[in-house]
Design a protein around this nucleic acid. Structure first.
Length: 205
DNA sequence: TAGGCCATCTGGTCCT
DNA sequence: AGGACCAGATGGCCTA
C-alpha cells in the first residue's frame, strides 16, 4: 500500500540509507500534501468569491424586480419569496386588467375596422384572452359604487405579505395591485377578493 | 425564546 | 480544468 515503506534493492548496500530515504520521502509527501491543500484552499476561496458574486447579482436583479412592484406603503420591503409570488400575481393582474380594458373600451381609431387589434407579441394576445372566464368583469363596477370597506384601504406590511405570499394561479379571484394610467381612472387600486361578482372590491386611491 | 429570513460556505454535478 | 449552478448546513439578526 505504502510504496515509501517498501525496501528497495539498494537498501542492503548502506545500512543507514533506508531510514533516511523514508524520512526524505515522508517530507516530500508532506510537502505535496501541503501544496495540494493550499491549492484546494485557494480554489475553494475563489469559488466562494464567485458564488458570493453570483448571489449578489441575483439579489440585485431581485431588487430591480422589487422596485417595479407596487407595494403599500411604498417603502415596504418584500422578502425574496414574496417578491417572486407578488410579481407573478402582479403580472396576472395587469394582463387581466388589459383583457378587461379591451372588453370595455372601443378600439382606438387606428384599429377600427380591423378584425383584431394587433398585439406586440404574437402569442401575448392569446395568452391574455385565455384568462379565466370565471373572473368577474370590472367594467360595471369601475363607474359604480366601490366596496366601502376597501375605499382608501392601505395595507400594513404584514397584511401585504399575506397577500403577496399567497400562491395564486392564473385566474384566481384574489389579487392586489396598484395600477396607474388605467383606462378608467388615472390611479386605480385593485385589491381584495371577488367573493361576490356583483360587488367587486375596487377602490380609488 | 422560537421561528423566519438572510448571507455565506461548501461539496457535488454539469457544461464548456 | 475551471466556471456556473444548485442545494444543504450554519450562524447571525430581527421580530412576535
Amino acid at each position: 500500500q505504502d510504496a515509501a515503506e517498501a525496501p528497495s534493492s539498494g537498501d542492503s548496500a548502506e545500512p543507514g540509507a533506508p531510514r533516511e530515504r523514508r524520512r526524505r520521502r515522508g517530507r516530500a509527501r508532506a510537502r505535496t500534501e501541503a501544496l495540494l491543500h493550499t491549492l484546494k484552499r485557494s480554489r475553494r476561496v475563489k469559488a466562494n468569491d464567485r458564488e458570493r458574486n453570483r448571489m449578489h447579482h441575483l439579489n440585485a436583479a431581485l431588487d430591480e424586480l422589487r422596485s417595479v412592484l407596487p407595494t403599500f406603503p411604498d417603502d415596504t420591503k418584500l422578502t425574496k419569496i414574496e417578491t417572486l409570488r407578488f410579481a407573478y400575481n402582479y403580472i396576472w393582474a395587469l394582463s387581466e386588467t388589459l383583457r378587461l380594458a379591451e372588453q370595455c373600451l372601443p378600439p382606438p381609431p387606428a384599429f377600427r375596422g380591423a378584425a383584431a387589434p394587433p398585439s406586440p407579441g404574437s402569442d401575448a394576445g392569446s395568452w391574455l384572452s385565455s384568462a379565466s372566464p370565471s373572473a368577474p368583469s370590472l367594467c360595471a363596477s369601475a363607474s359604480g359604487p366601490s366596496s366601502p370597506h376597501l375605499r382608501g384601504l392601505r395595507l400594513r406590511p404584514r397584511q401585504l405579505r399575506a397577500f403577496a405570499g399567497l400562491p395564486l394561479p392564473p385566474g384566481s379571484p384574489l389579487y392586489c395591485c396598484k395600477i396607474t394610467n388605467f383606462p378608467f381612472s388615472p390611479r386605480l387600486c385593485v385589491m381584495g377578493e371577488y367573493s361576490d361578482p356583483q360587488n367587486p372590491t375596487v377602490c380609488s386611491s
